[in-house]
Design a binder for these strands. Structure first.
Length: 552
RNA sequence: GCGCCAGUAGCUCAGCUGGAUAGAGCGUUCGGCUACGAACCGAAAGGUCAGGGGUUCAAAUCCCUUCUGGCGUACCA
């Protein structure tokens, strides 16, 4: 249990006991403990008196006074209890609390911030899953950054995490891909060709056709169109998937598994999934098609699983895939990171899983809203139709993985965001990425110089009495809490925000307290403090998959 | 039409499981390097929390409603 958790548990127990003494029923777990941002309100705060006001039919302040009278702080971190505002009870902690926090960080180092609220539950997180008919484009970049960091956050919170990329290598798009390749291939050899109406237009299609011709010359010119398309499509998929893998790796993402949609078909998993849903009694036939009775599970309309011509609709392989994840492979929790354009799809997929007998809390879908790229104050226009796309590789080349990963995670996934390409490369205080990395480098630089001074004293944390020092420790103490909240809310943005807050307080501290001072004991204590900051910044940056430079 | 998401400072965004004076960065104005990294810090100005109702000790936060923007709403994927 972390020092912060210990303090909180002490307060919960004490308040519950004191509340019982004034005639209220209150379990320790029901005591809602807040951490006020205002330092003068103390370390923790409790609104119990207000909550009990109605039940006890008394003025909150009067209740608060009674509770405070009954509080016994023996053997706890609590130093003072005060009543404030409308009836808040504020707890001020003894300095020993801050000392213990710093000691805890120095002892746990790269483990500091880890917890086990996940209880080693197995989580599969699927993200990016870009269409393999083309390169990973900028639209997938946000989902990639969010998914990878969420996976790391969950791991820190004690979940057993598995990262997966779902490869849509079957179905209509692949057929279209093959047809587009065929056209470019024939064109290259001067044969007659017709470009498919809504085929893929980008230059990369020509490149793939050319690549094939280089390796196999014209061996497909005389075969049936059917086979030609299939061969080219498979060739292209292999190239594209290898490219995607490489681009994602440059972005700091590696997967435990690349799961092929085609494997579902090869193993008959799609009809099996349909059969499962049918057996559960959630289907009916109409107009020759097999329908899913989604309205019974709260959706606004039913939808088709198998068309009247016998082919599955787009959602059916996805059902099979999720059955595979949650039933066959039996992951406790599946998380999908999807673009917001899929939001209409979420209740449907959830309904099918419910029908399949999967508990509601086992599938979580995180939607990432669209990103507008901004360059020189102008929105960068992209047209998929014309093949004008910005790829993930372009982005990483232009701004680097650190800036991209940090900025995509800085905002809540569920808000629209502008990504300013100019800002991302700026090495200034406008740029939060450099701001945080600079703080880390600054600490490393100070520590390097202090090492030459050969401080012999054991650090005595009781010397850390300045406001700027206490403020710093207060933030450090919260790190594990931030990770837990991020995991519980599937909200990775807490981590970069926290990192910025910690970096800012470090800079404030730097400007008001010197580390290299005459007083050797004080110097030792301050070195210990900034070392703790360095550890936590490094841990936060590690979660984000971003370098923590020792100098810049 | 119905549904989902968003609307908070000039700009980009926090805060949203109700709590104390609505925050941060940028931009603007002023100030701070002969001291450990000025890629930094301090201060000031800047708000009808889109509008209107409601719920209660307390609403940016919950409910209803209107407006604005984005996206869904296929036997397309």
């Amino acid at each position: 249990m972390s020092i912060l958790d210990q303090a909180r548990a002490q307060i919960a127990a004490i308040v519950a006991r004191a509340a019982g003494a004034v005639g209220a029923e209150l379990a320790a777990a029901e005591v809602k403990i807040e951490m006020p941002k205002e330092q003068s309100f103390g370390e923790f705060s409790v609104n119990t008196a207000m909550q009990l006001a109605r039940q006890l039919k008394q003025n909150p302040r009067a209740i608060a006074e009674d509770i405070v009278k009954g509080i016994d702080t023996q053997g706890t971190y609590i130093q003072a209890v005060e009543i404030a505002g409308a009836g808040f009870i504020n707890f001020r902690l003894s300095h020993r609390y801050y000392e213990d926090v710093v000691k805890e960080i120095l002892a746990r180092r790269s483990e500091y911030g880890k917890s086990n609220i996940g209880m080693s539950k197995r989580v599969i997180i699927e993200f990016v899953s870009a269409n393999p008919t083309g390169p990973v484009h900028i639209g997938n970049a946000r989902g990639g950054a969010v998914g990878d960091v969420l996976a790391e956050v969950m791991a820190w919170a004690g979940y057993d995490v598995y990262r997966e990329f779902y490869v849509n290598d079957a179905g209509n798009q692949v057929a279209k891909f093959g047809a587009s390749l065929e056209a470019r291939y024939l064109e290259m050899f001067g044969r007659d060709f017709t470009f498919p109406e809504d085929g893929y237009v980008g230059d990369y299609i020509k490149d793939i056709a050319l690549e094939y011709a280089k390796e196999h010359s014209g061996d497909l010119l005389e075969v049936a169109s059917d086979e030609r398309q299939r061969t080219l499509a498979q060739f292209g998929l292999a190239l594209n998937i290898a490219d995607m893998e490489q681009a994602l790796e440059r972005y700091g993402i590696t997967y435990d598994n690349w799961f092929r949609e085609s494997s579902l078909y090869e193993n008959d998993k799609v009809p099996q999934a349909v059969e499962l849903i049918r057996q559960k009694g959630y289907t009916y036939e109409k107009d020759g098609a097999l329908w899913f009775e989604a309205t019974r599970l709260g959706c606004d309309k039913d939808f088709v699983l198998v068309r009247s011509n016998g082919t599955p609709t787009y959602i059916t392989p996805d059902i099979a895939y999720h059955v595979n994840k949650l039933i066959e492979r039996n992951f406790d929790i599946a998380i999908d990171i999807l673009g917001a354009d899929h939001h209409g799809y979420v209740p449907r997929l959830s309904a099918t899983m419910e029908a399949a007998g999967v508990g509601k809390d086992r599938l979580h879908i995180v939607l990432t809203q669209f990103v507008r790229l901004v360059r020189r104050k102008e929105v960068v226009k992209m047209s998929k139709r014309k093949g004008e796309i910005i790829t993930l590789s372009d982005l990483v080349s232009e701004v680097g993985k650190d800036a991209a990963r940090f900025l995509f995670n800085l905002y809540n996934p569920n808000t629209h965001m502008d990504f300013d390409l100019d800002l991302a490369v700026e090495k200034s205080n406008d740029n939060p990425v450099f701001y945080v990395q600079y703080a880390h480098a600054r600490i490393c630089s100070i520590i390097r110089q202090c090492e030459e001074e050969r401080v012999r004293s054991e650090p005595d944390m009781s010397l850390l009495q300045e406001d700027a020092e206490i403020a710093l420790i207060r933030i450090l103490a919260r790190f594990g809490e931030e990770i837990i909240l991020a995991a519980q809310h599937f909200d990775t943005s807490r981590i970069p925000k926290y990192a910025v807050e910690l970096a800012a307080q470090l800079h404030t501290f730097y400007n008001s307290c010197r580390v290299r001072v005459e007083d050797e004991a004080l110097m030792a204590a301050r070195i210990a403090l900034i070392t703790a900051v360095e550890i936590v910044l490094k841990n936060a940056l590690d979660i984000l998959g971003i370098d923590a430079p020792e100098q810049m």
